[in-house]
Amino acid sequence: MKTAHSCCCRAAFDALRSGRNGVSSQDCGKISGCYTTARDETRAGGAGNGDLRDQPHRSSLLIVFPDQGDRSCSQFRVDEAAKKVLPAPGIQPVPSQFDTIGVEAALRIKDKQPDTVITVLSLGPDSFRDTIKHCLAMGADEGVHINDPAVNGADHWATAEVLAAAIKKLEPFDLIIAGRQAVDWDMGIVGSTIAEILGIPVVTIAKDIQHNDGRVTVERVLLDGFETVEAPTPAVVTVSNELGEPRYPQLRQIMMAAKKEVKPWTLGDIGISAPEKRITLEALFVPETKVETEFIEGDTPQEKGEKLATRLREAKLI
């Protein structure tokens, strides 16, 4: 709040604080993104809207970035004319691992506080529904999928603006958990930008998140160690892979997830128009690599090792 830099941010922050419940909006049409949020049904008195103002709520918001990572990253080709990367045949896009780590982080909070409600929010094309369903099968409670052709190919800032606007509709919440980085394209920007738009604190690169009554305690990964940072909620936390492996859904959970709702939203449902792009991808290309690989041969692995040493000595590298 103190560092909110515009009236807009301030208003957003106040709105967040006011505890207005916007999650149960019945008028959602189609969605072009998705978020995950969690609320405390018990504390909320059976989730009655009128009770929410006076009841502490817990919610985590996960942002799934609008680009699906390809885990077999070594297998792709670049279409330089279209400035797109095409996965190798047979490779299905999967959720960005950092983002499912975000769901994992939220679930660990829910493990300790079962009354937490987790909502998954994402922005992307039709295929993102499967990503959201995967998050629901992991244990998230509900999904919102913002799917609108007007934001196809949105850059990080347009994405952040749309997500921030959707978050305002979904408030109140305590935590927004964002993947640190989608596999390739995200530059670690969206989570921080959302925090700036909403005027709330952000803690980046978390490996552990503890959430207690109005405070979040985050263990951050530094290059040469760790640091523990506290912030008041609502806050944005971006997570890192050091958090550990995301859980894999059990069959029973997958069946249960089929019944969970994924709300489709359009920009109209959120009440904003498509934000302008701020960055332009001018070119995408594969740099020429001139590496000629020499395979070291030998009768035994031991001998290959010895020959390698000799070759490196000849190249004056050792």
């Binding site: 395979f295 090792g305 390698l308």
Partner: peptide, 26 residues
Amino acid sequence: FKSSRWAVVGDWKEIVSGFTEKVRQL
């Protein structure tokens, strides 16, 4: 291997053992 100047295929333990020993000698 595509980005490697030198490539050695095989059991890493033995390769490393042979390599380290040879480097010591050199």
